[in-house]
């Protein structure tokens, strides 16, 4: 309860600013329309009209909420008009890319920690890969994979993977190197093999770093999936909704898709946080 009041206060302030901004941004259009129709307009009328346009510059919160309600609860989830359907299309690519990115990231980190040549050579490439704007490389990945006969979920998942392996590599290299010299020496005194050292010491020690990386990777993965949907001709997914919305000036649709994306990201990161809490608590590390 004590936590709820400040949170609600902040939300209320944001909503208030949002309504005010909607008036400010949409007023010109209302005034122009009124002038064209030779109509006098009062200030109360003006405010109400800025909050109820079909294609406002900035939709009011209740318009977005209404749109969200209509496209989630009131639509069959198999319908192409359902936001749940589009969210699922994006989420499935996100999860596939996240899984692949995590696997790739962990594999690279293990290589960097155990193989000296990889330690010296891989990291600069990993960092360079992230300096390329994803918007530039995404269409090329889609086109190349399409030429190879791959379409649908996989190309999008590849873009998700491209973004999400990075935080996992960085976090896991740090995590796998978390054991102290003393702990590593201790393993040596027991004449432990490398795989015993990895499984019993390095891997458990890396868990706090692993979960922190996963949260960033999940968010990056969702961005990747949405970006991956843009060049596919807006077939399905939250990215498609964003693109279609901007083609036709459907700002309400854009905003509701944005909110859906934020909600999906929050839910996924929250889920990882939950697993993290339970795991680290059981491991005595939290």
């Amino acid at each position: 309860m004590r936590n709820l009041i400040p949170v609600l206060t902040v939300v209320a302030v944001i909503v208030a600013i949002w309504y005010a901004a909607a008036v400010w941004l949409n007023a010109q259009w209302v005034l122009d329309t009124a002038a064209r129709q030779d109509r006098e307009i009062g200030s109360a009328e003006l405010v109400l009209e800025t909050w109820s346009q079909d294609k406002p510059r900035l939709p009011a919160p209740h318009q977005v909420v209404t749109e969200l309600w209509e496209t989630t609860v009131q639509k069959n989830i198999t319908s192409k008009r359902s936001l749940v359907y589009h969210a699922w299309v994006t989420l499935s690519a996100t999860l596939a890319g996240f899984a692949m990115g995590t696997a790739l990231g962990v594999a690279l980190a293990v290589g960097i920690v155990y193989v000296r040549v990889m330690d010296m050579s891989v990291m600069p490439w990993v960092i360079a890969s992230q300096t390329i704007p994803i918007l530039a490389i995404a269409p090329m990945i889609i086109v190349v994979l399409n030429a190879m006969g791959l379409s649908g979920l996989l190309p999008k998942a590849m873009i998700s993977m491209y973004l999400s392996f990075f935080p996992v590599v960085v976090g896991m290299v740090k995590g796998l190197r978390a054991p102290s010299m003393m702990q590593l020496d201790q393993m040596r005194t027991w004449n432990a093999t490398q795989s015993q050292e990895f499984l019993r010491l390095r891997l458990p020690s890396s868990m706090p770093y692993f979960f922190a990386s996963l949260k960033i990777a999940m968010a990056a993965s969702l961005v990747g999936a949405i970006v991956g949907e843009l060049p596919t001709g807006a077939v399905a997914g939250l990215g498609a909704r964003l693109l279609a919305g901007s083609y036709y000036g459907q700002t309400i649709q854009i905003w509701s898709a944005l909110f859906m994306a934020a909600f999906v990201a929050a839910a996924m990161v929250g889920l990882i946080g939950l697993v993290q809490r339970v795991t680290l608590k059981r491991m005595g590390m939290a």
Binding site: M182, D185, Q186, T189, M283, G284, M285
Partner: peptide
Amino acid sequence: YGYVFQAAGLYPW
């Protein structure tokens, strides 16, 4: 031999 280090170094998990 068994080696005892300065710190106990027990695994928390």
